[in-house]
């Protein structure tokens, strides 16, 4: 699904040139659950923004679903991202002015689906995520765990193939954190590819593979025991 080679990202300001990612090589197959780890400033977030088609690399190649996308325009990236990639953030990033229902519906609107179709899809995912009773609530009226469930629902409502999660448990207590990890694992089992940035070795171990970043390089790749059984956690 993803293949990057000799990927470089350099940020330039007037005086300083910061190398965020220096010659990274990585391959992620469909259906994998990959955790990206590394100290602060190691380039985790930069890598995630490039993988998520939010930014383009300075140098190198990036194949996404067989397309070389490193030189795509912003518009091309937007179109590709819309259909294929879902995001989950540490601070949820829901729009405060929209209800849970409307937040989840948003990507479907941008995909251009009809309202009846959207309704079915949103209701289905809300049911799955146990959010139906909260459908008319605004984000601020929800607990952190509920907000993150809504964010995950938004990330996958359009049947996105790739889920990018940036510290998805960072703002949650352990019970809610476990619940979110459980959701990601379930999605992965359902066939979605999950790439997650985390500081937590415990949650990283839920992944099939851990990619260690250091100073913008892929320092190490470990195959973990594999996704734990969902049942086991419950």
């Amino acid at each position: 699904m993803i293949r990057i080679s000799n990927l470089k990202k350099i940020y330039r300001t007037d005086e300083v040139e910061t190398v965020a990612v220096a010659s990274a090589n990585l391959r992620i197959d469909s259906g994998e659950f990959v955790a990206i780890m590394g100290p602060s400033g190691s380039g985790k977030t930069t890598l995630l923004t490039i993988l998520g088609l939010l930014d383009s690399p300075t140098e190198g190649e990036y194949y996404f679903l067989g397309h070389e996308v490193s030189r795509y325009s912003e518009k091309q990236r937007t179109v590709l991202r819309r259909k294929n990639i879902g995001f989950v953030f540490q601070n949820f990033n829901l729009i405060n002015e929209l209800t849970v229902y409307e937040n989840i519906e948003l990507p479907l609107i941008y995909m251009g689906l009809a309202s009846s179709e959207r309704k079915n899809m949103v209701m289905e995912i809300m049911e799955k995520m146990r959010l139906t009773p909260r459908r008319n609530h605004f984000p601020k009226q929800l607990s952190g765990g509920q907000q993150q469930r809504a964010a995950v629902a938004r990330a996958i409502v359009g049947k996105q193939k790739l889920i990018l999660a940036d510290e998805p448990t960072g703002n949650l207590d352990s019970r809610n954190g476990d619940e979110v990890m459980n959701l990601l694992a379930q999605l992965n089992e359902g066939g979605a590819t999950v790439v997650m940035v985390t500081h937590s070795t415990e949650y990283a171990s839920w992944a099939n593979r851990i990619v260690q970043l250091f100073d913008g390089h892929v320092a190490n790749e470990n195959i973990t025991e594999g996704t734990r059984s969902v049942l086991e956690l419950r």
Binding site: R82, L94, Y110
Partner: peptide, 12 residues
């Protein structure tokens, strides 16, 4: 934040 989220979700 709203702008960012909308763009992320596919708004031009």
């Amino acid at each position: 934040r709203e702008v960012g989220i909308r763009k992320l979700l596919g708004s031009f």
